[in-house]
Design a protein around this nucleic acid. Structure first.
Lengths: 219, 219
DNA sequence: TCGTGTGAAGACGTTCACAGCT
DNA sequence: AGCTGTGAACGTCTTCACACGA
């Protein structure tokens, strides 16, 4: 393969899983930085991230060369480099659609902003029913979501509507310009190829676990 | 390979992803059953689940033969067969550890019971601070979690404590006999091989998405 | 010598294509 | 003819093992 210090237009050949791990590395690096560490080796960082060192090094090669042989990586430089790769240099606005039980909990969740995301607006089909406890953000009518997206160039959405309403809501989001959907509704979304969907199906995760504990039940 | 109608002790060779998809199939089958469908073809079911038909058929062969050539699958029989494979014939008790913002939202979440799980108890380091709104379950002191697990033979736990407390809490759960942990805390858990951890890292999922939308930003 | 960067090998999962049953 | 069940081909991701630079 050809040599390249940076990626060209073709982000396509990079394993999805590698990109996911990049986020993990970044979090570990931030923690190391807080602890005043200046440099880190691939094996140390890999250990913290729960992967093998070769994997970490291979993941990084997809994007460039960041280390110094015999020494390791500069914690800060690597963190910044990964941040750039992930497109997290300026913060992306995010909207939340469906402010029911789960949705409103996510609005109160501090984890997103801790990682540098800002939920800029929330929408619900019946905004009045949303119990506002602890939610600083107003909940708008779902009808306005399309306009809001276009006007504010929102590209990321968190989708927490019931399964029956999910596909229709997704269609609306995509039509208005959303390119990434974090989907919490238990349904299979159909979207154009250019749109990325990450589905988090809570019940499914639990069900999946139950397979792995079931075997020792026959007591 | 040898012929077998059912799996033997060696569940090991089965792809984790196949097991995950089994849960999806089951959900689709339940929906079909509600709609009064008696039989379904691999391509129809695969379409509903968002996978290729060959994949569905291959997934099923790990566990046995469930279809009729030329006809398809009996919706009800296949659903029951999958349910048995997943160990979901009798309902598993589940506990929730960490009843903060996210944890208490999950306590109110109806999705788990909709899939046949029962959250039997909740624990928190500071039970008094938990706002009980809409939570029918009492929140116990975290100190009692070990005893509760042993006494009630709990094997599944949902972990929603802060990252700093996650590993210690996990250790306690595992020591008491928990075999599966659904981990919502943004940290890498170290557990024995016999224990399965499914991590759902909300911020990480969002961060991951942001990579896929970042490219068309240079307008 | 130490630890990164990386081709090559290996493991794993998916898709194909068709044999075989209904 | 129609559709499942499945070995074989394929593609993707992971791991190895070592060359290379500090």
């Amino acid at each position: 393969m050809e040599k390249r210090t940076c990626w060209s237009v073709e982000k396509l050949e990079i394993p999805k899983k590698a990109i996911y791990r990049l986020s993990i590395y970044q979090r570990c690096l931030s923690k190391l930085l807080e602890n005043g560490k200046k440099t880190v080796s691939s094996s140390a960082l890999a250990g913290a991230a729960g992967v093998k060192s070769a994997q970490l090094r291979k993941d990084l090669t997809y994007f460039g060369q960041f280390g110094t042989r015999g020494l390791g990586y500069s914690v800060e430089e690597l963190r910044d480099a990964i941040r750039e790769v992930l497109g997290r240099e300026q913060l992306q606005p995010v909207i939340l659609v469906g402010a029911g039980n789960l949705g409103s909990a996510l609005l109160r969740y501090r984890g997103f902003e801790r990682e540098g995301f800002e939920v800029v607006a929330a929408f619900d089909a019946v905004p009045d029913t949303v119990v506002k406890r602890g939610i600083s953000l107003p909940v708008h009518d779902l009808e306005d979501v399309g306009r809001f997206i276009s006007e504010n160039h929102v590209k990321l959405a968190i989708l927490c509507v019931p399964a029956e309403a999910a596909q229709e809501a997704a269609n609306e989001l995509v039509a208005a310009g959303v390119q990434g959907i974090l989907n919490f509704s238990p349904s299979v979304l159909q979207v154009p190829e250019a749109v990325t969907v990450n589905s988090v199906d809570l019940a499914l995760e639990l069900e999946n676990l139950s397979y792995f504990v079931s075997q020792e039940n026959g007591g």
